[in-house]
Amino acid sequence: MINADCPNCGAAVRFRSADLPVRVCDYCRSSLVRSGEVLQAMGKIAEVPADVSPLQIGTRGMWTETPFELIGRVRWRWADGGWNEWLMLFADGSTGWLGEAMGRYMALRALDHAAGRTGVVRALRDDSPIALGMDATIDRVRYIVTDIKQATCVASEGELPFSAPAGLAMKSLDLQASDGRCASVQKDRGQVSVYVGAFVDLAGLRATNMRAFEDWPMPNFAA
């Protein structure tokens, strides 16, 4: 845990991870970028719109036998809805993403290599047309493309591996395998990133420290 002061408003800012370069100040919503020891305020980030997500910064859980804590969130919007991507900080210092859309969750980790030889990944990189149902084999797992979205960033909070200003455009592909595994390929600012993982639910993640709602009891798995 590293403590610092927000260069914009002076509020206390805590970093759970030493590696992530971006932090949104909880109080003044400035985007704080770290380079070495220096913390710089680079513009304001919009408030994340109110929603009824049961997840919050600080929610903890377990995935692939490794404990994690949610330390950041990016909210994306597309023509027919929006979704959250929560940054998972694992006990070993690595990170992953917990995608939350339509009440369903995908836990994903970035692939070390960009899977550059996969047709779908190349098509995204070269801006060639991609159709739903297209086959893709990533890391020896077969997927088909189930979703193609053009999205823009709405807001963000917490600690993040990149700066996510409002209006940042992103093209996102969702892929599903037959056994519950899934993948996501995203292109923003010219860069393609590939994430692989699986569908999960909060019970399976053994989620704790979830957001409490005054009119909802905690579910049985968290009781």
Partner: peptide, 29 residues
């Protein structure tokens, strides 16, 4: 950050002016 919130929000329908509830903000499209 730890205060509890209600999930139901009241909205006004722009077409008829009636009060409607939004129960799944962030998910509802």
């Amino acid at each position: 950050m730890t205060e509890t919130a209600a999930t139901v929000r009241a909205l006004t329908c722009p077409a008829c002016g009636g009060t409607i509830a939004l129960r799944a903000a962030g998910y509802t499209v």
